[in-house]
Amino acid sequence: MDEEVCRMTELSKELQDSAASLISRSCNEEASLRQRALSLHTSISNLRSSISSSLKKGNLHPQHALKLEEELGRARYLLTQGDAAAFLPTKSHGRFLRMFIGPLNVRATRKDVQLKVKEEYNSFRDRTALLFLVFPLLLLGLRSWTWDGCLPALPVQLYQAWLLFLYTGLALRENILRVNGSDIRPWWIYHHYCAMAMALISMTWEIEKQPDCSQKQKGVQLFLYWAIMQGVAMLLQNRYQRQRLYTRIALGKAQRMDVVWGETSGVDGQLWLLCPILFILQGFEAYVGVLLLQTALVGVVSEWQVITCGILLIVMAAGNFVNTVQTLLTKSRFKAKMKKGKSKD
Rank of each mutant, 00 (worst) to 15 (best):
A129L: 00
L131Q: 02
F132T: 07
F132W: 01
L133N: 08
V134L: 15
F135P: 00
P136L: 06
L138G: 09
L138S: 13
L138E: 03
L139K: 08
L140F: 02
G141N: 06
L142W: 09
R143K: 15
S144Q: 14
T146G: 01
W147Q: 08
G149N: 08
L151Q: 05
L151I: 15
P152E: 07
L154N: 05
P155E: 07
P155M: 07
V156F: 14
L158M: 13
Y159V: 05
W162G: 08
L163Y: 00
L163I: 00
Y167T: 09
Y167P: 05
G169V: 05
L170W: 04
L170Q: 08
R173Q: 14
I176P: 01
L177C: 07
R178L: 09
N180Q: 06
G181K: 02
G181E: 01
D183A: 13
I184G: 01
I184Q: 01
P186I: 01
P186D: 09
I189W: 10
Y190V: 08
A195V: 11
M196D: 03
M198V: 04
A199Q: 04
L200T: 04
I201W: 02
I201L: 15
M203T: 08
E206G: 09
K209M: 06
Q210P: 02
P211A: 03
P211N: 02
D212F: 08
S214R: 13
S214N: 05
K216M: 10
K216T: 10
Q217T: 07
K218I: 05
G219F: 07
G219A: 14
G219C: 12
G219T: 11
V220H: 06
Q221D: 13
F223C: 05
F223I: 01
F223P: 00
A227W: 03
I228M: 15
M229D: 03
M229K: 00
G231R: 02
G231M: 02
G231D: 04
M234E: 12
M234T: 04
L236N: 03
Q237T: 15
N238V: 03
N238C: 13
N238K: 05
Y240N: 09
Y240C: 07
R242S: 08
Q243N: 10
Q243I: 03
Q243P: 01
L245R: 11
Y246I: 03
I249R: 01
I249K: 00
I249A: 03
A250E: 06
G252W: 01
K253Q: 08
A254S: 11
Q255W: 00
Q255I: 00
Q255S: 10
R256M: 03
M257S: 00
M257R: 00
M257V: 15
M257K: 00
D258F: 04
D258R: 06
V259L: 13
G262V: 12
E263S: 13
S265A: 14
S265K: 11
V267F: 14
V267W: 14
D268C: 14
D268Q: 15
G269V: 10
Q270W: 12
Q270G: 12
L271G: 07
W272P: 05
W272R: 15
L273G: 12
L273H: 09
